[in-house]
Amino acid sequence: MNKVMSDKWFITLYILPAMLLLGILIFIPLVLTGYYGLMRWDGIGSMEFIGLANYINVLQDGVFWRSAGHSFLLALFSTLSLIIYLAVAMILASKIKGADFLRKIYLIPMLLSSVAIAQLWIKIYNPSNGMLNEILRGLGVQNPPLWLADPNIVLYSIFVPILWQYAGFYILIYYAALKGIPESIVEAAKIDGATPIQIAYKIKLPLIMGVVKVTVVLAIIGSLKYFDLIWVMTGGGPNGASEVMASYMYKLAFANNNFGYGSAVAFMLLLITLLVTLIVRKLTADKEELQY
């Protein structure tokens, strides 16, 4: 039996397809990105080694840092919005009839492609005929905002569909975690005279802290690499007001054929993502494991 279950040929044969695909299409490209960053290269012609020049330029590139700032702002919004999602999940998990149905309704936007969501919200935000401004005009607003065309508010306008898209996802995760809390703990607190607010804040929240930390990491990482929706809605405009790290990199490589510099930006995106993951994990590391 043990001999059969350690058949080397069989193991090799079965692990090989997954290993090759992952190695060739994920790990090797990752290393190559860092390597291409050392080159001057238009993507077609021959490469010219220029050392760390691209990376030094990225560090001094105002457009890159402005884009990074937008990415971090989105990460901040996303993290703060977790509070709303958590509150909704708390309500949903408090013996509400139809909770199962409601959380499915909340999840629907998450199933749509970012492209479809972007196109839909372009229509919603359309200054003259969009749903939003029609409602605002109906309420008597004289000059409703231009939303995506106004550089001062474009980032906020983009964030609303992001909030809309991911709400159901986070509510679902929090709801599942809250449902995992044993009823006896909550009952005991009630008998001791705790108010619903106290139960939510002092008992339920600490018990699902592990899940909350995971979602903070997910929200921050997800925001730092956000691309599809912004690319379709504004292309980073107007005038770079909604440019993020990924869209800047994409423009450099695939619109300007600046593959070397684009790779350096892509590598910075990877480093920043890994670094932030590490920092967030460290900051939220468990000091004491709560158990029930």
Partner: peptide, 18 residues
């Protein structure tokens, strides 16, 4: 394989293309 979960696709897009 689990490390593969953490990779942002934009960081490998240019080499994939080439």
């Amino acid at each position: 394989f689990m490390v593969g979960l953490m990779i942002p696709i934009h960081s490998s897009l240019i080499p994939l293309f080439s």
